[in-house]
């Protein structure tokens, strides 16, 4: 990986800002659900902040992503406005999807968030279609398909990788390997040691990378995205990371390996990058504090906006089923 492109310090700061937004947003989600102000299933992305941040700084708003129920990090990094995100989490009509989709199904085409799926594995086949459209129209977009380690064992993964390689689609498959699928460890669900190794079976490059290392993750993402944009076809990235929390809020993850989990939390990638940017003199303490304070203010506003918004009216049950409202 010595030949990987390296982010300059301005890029690292942009990545850090995204990571801090994801971290603080997650903190708020825990609070809001625990105090009962919003009832929703919430799948924390805490611990996985680097991955979408490193990817997104290599993308434009035009590029597409597909993500999963554990996807607020992917959405925020891609630029979904927190106000619209929070209003959707709260089931309000002002949300990205008028409150009809909810946390597992955020769609925001304006920022390229095309599909969020609650069905394991289903982000990949659809990502291929988006990429195919780009290939047909020559619009130079790249599509990112996010999914978990557990999803690599479903048929859709294998079908999608083969098709993407065969058609040389401008797509990047990003397996966020957080070591758990609900209560099942990676080792107990997967016969190979590395998902990245499977790329060889589909004649595409496979990169297994430390997804919590900002530089390595940036490099892997940039190589894959550049490759896709150059018409050279898909790449599989297995980004090694760690799920800090249980599967969803309410699951304390007591079944997780305590030592391993503590080690991952102690190596919190957000805190680490902050410390590094300060020690390298890229940011001062005050700069870093200001980034956090600005994000906090933005989140305060987003949550207040969400909770102050109206719920959708019942006629929404008849709208958006088809183009024409149901009778």
């Amino acid at each position: 990986m010595s030949n990987y492109p390296i982010p300059d310090s301005a890029t690292l700061v942009r990545m850090y800002e995204k990571m801090e937004l994801i971290r603080l947003n997650d903190e708020r989600a825990h609070k809001v659900v625990k105090t009962g102000r919003i009832v929703m299933p919430y799948y924390s992305p805490r611990g996985q902040e680097v991955i979408p941040s490193a990817i997104s700084v290599n993308l434009t708003e035009e590029d597409y992503i597909c993500t999963i129920y554990r996807g607020t990090h992917d959405m925020l990094a891609k630029g979904v406005p927190p106000k619209l995100l929070w209003a959707e989490l709260a089931g309000r009509v002002t949300g990205t999807c008028k409150g009809k989709g909810g946390p597992m199904h955020i769609t925001h085409p304006e920022t390229g968030v095309m599909v969020t799926t609650g069905v394991v594995g289903s982000s990949m086949p659809i990502a291929n279609g988006l990429a195919w459209a780009s290939q047909l129209s020559g619009d130079d977009r790249v599509t990112i398909a996010n999914f978990g380690d557990g999803a690599a064992n479903i048929g859709a993964f294998h079908e999608s990788l083969n098709l993407a390689a065969l058609w040389k689609l401008p797509v990047v498959f990003v397996c966020q390997n957080n070591r758990y699928a609900e209560h099942t460890t990676f080792a107990n669900s997967t016969a190979v040691d590395r998902i990245g190794d499977r790329a060889a079976s589909y004649a595409m490059p496979g990169i297994t990378v430390d997804g919590n290392d900002p530089e390595a993750m940036y490099g892997a993402a940039k190589i894959a995205i550049d490759r896709a944009k150059a018409g050279e076809g898909p790449t599989l990235i297995e980004a090694m990371t760690y799920r800090f929390n249980g599967h969803l809020l309410g699951d304390d993850g007591h079944y997780m390996d305590k030592e391993e989990r503590q080690k991952a939390i102690d190596a919190d990638p957000v805190a680490r990058l902050r410390a590094r940017l300060i020690s390298d003199g890229v940011l001062s303490e005050a700069d870093a504090d200001k980034i956090s304070a600005d994000i906090t203010a933005q989140l305060d506003e987003a949550i207040a906006f969400a909770l102050d918004s109206d719920f959708p009216t019942l006629d929404e049950l008849r709208r958006d089923v088809f183009a024409t409202e149901l009778a």
């Binding site: 009809k100 909810g102 959708p312 929404e316 049950l317």
Partner: peptide, 16 residues
């Protein structure tokens, strides 16, 4: 049930 996907928003889900 209403002829739509099960909605997330609570008032809609309650009416489903």
């Amino acid at each position: 049930g209403a002829f739509c996907a099960v909605p997330f928003s609570k008032p809609l889900e309650d009416a489903f």
